[in-house]
């Protein structure tokens, strides 16, 4: 009797498999776009923290402090519901129409916002690891500031930031799971709904766990490869 129930549940999982596949795409989509946003915010944040402008310092500080203080799920709920109110107020004051923050973009913005703060620290740390003499030497050879940054510093910052960057990606992917709480139909959201609707949540959640483990595993392989490539020619 029990095995029979197990087999029936497997049927349900197979029935929903194409839908869950779509959910995986949404999960990866949110994660990748959030990483892009986080990278941009991280670069801006690091630049602001390293700059001599006190206002920039302060803004970056407030940013990283808020992220450090508030749980991801709370921030997502705030951005999805409160952010819409804010946006409506702003748009209406411009006599505009209506612009919606969809669940997908609420997820991307929230997660990108959160991990941008972590990348701020990663990038700042990587910048400070590059020996000062290198920039000075490049300048003394008559290079202008932008080429110094672009051709001398950036390649090294990227190399030093790579382990931290990879780490943030791994955390970020798992963080996308909480976007399901605002009803996004990512892998977790769909598995949750389907599992509860079919009254067979166990198998659906086990499937989700396996997919995340696969994502983690592939990411680790890719990072290892990238790390080896970035450090080729370096003595250990």
């Amino acid at each position: 009797m029990r095995t029979l129930q197990g087999v029936r549940n497997l049927d349900k999982l197979l029935e929903f498999a194409p839908l869950l596949g779509r959910g995986v795409l949404v999960t990866v989509g949110v994660a990748v776009l959030a990483l892009v946003l986080a990278t941009a915010l991280g670069a801006l944040g690091a630049a602001a923290k390293l700059s001599r402008n006190l206002i920039f310092n302060w803004v970056a500080q407030v940013y990283t402090t808020i992220v450090r203080g508030v749980p991801d799920l709370v921030l997502i709920l705030l951005i999805y519901f409160g952010g819409q109110r804010l946006l409506n107020t702003v748009v209406q004051s411009f006599d505009g129409g209506y612009v919606e923050i969809s669940k997908f973009w609420a997820g991307v913005i929230s997660i990108g916002f959160i991990y941008g703060a972590y990348l701020t620290e990663t990038f700042r740390g990587a910048y400070m690891t590059v020996p000062k003499g290198q920039a000075e030497a490049a300048k003394s050879m008559g290079m202008r500031p932008l080429p110094v940054l672009w051709t001398v510093l950036l390649p090294q910052i990227m190399r030093f930031a790579l382990p931290g960057y990879g780490n943030v990606w791994m955390v970020l992917v798992k963080s996308t799971a909480v976007v399901s709480v605002i009803g996004l139909e990512d892998l977790v959201g769909l598995a949750d709904k389907a599992g509860k609707a079919t009254r067979a949540p166990f198998l659906f959640f086990v499937a989700v766990i396996l997919v995340y483990l696969a994502i983690t595993w592939v990411s680790q392989l890719a990072l290892k490869y990238a790390d080896e490539r970035a450090n080729r020619g370096q003595t250990a």
Binding site: V91, F94, D95, G97, Y98, V99, E100, S102, W105, I109
Partner: peptide, 14 residues
Amino acid sequence: KFALAAAFAAFATS
């Protein structure tokens, strides 16, 4: 209105 719509177009669906 146009400028705003353009600004938010990347982040939202209207």
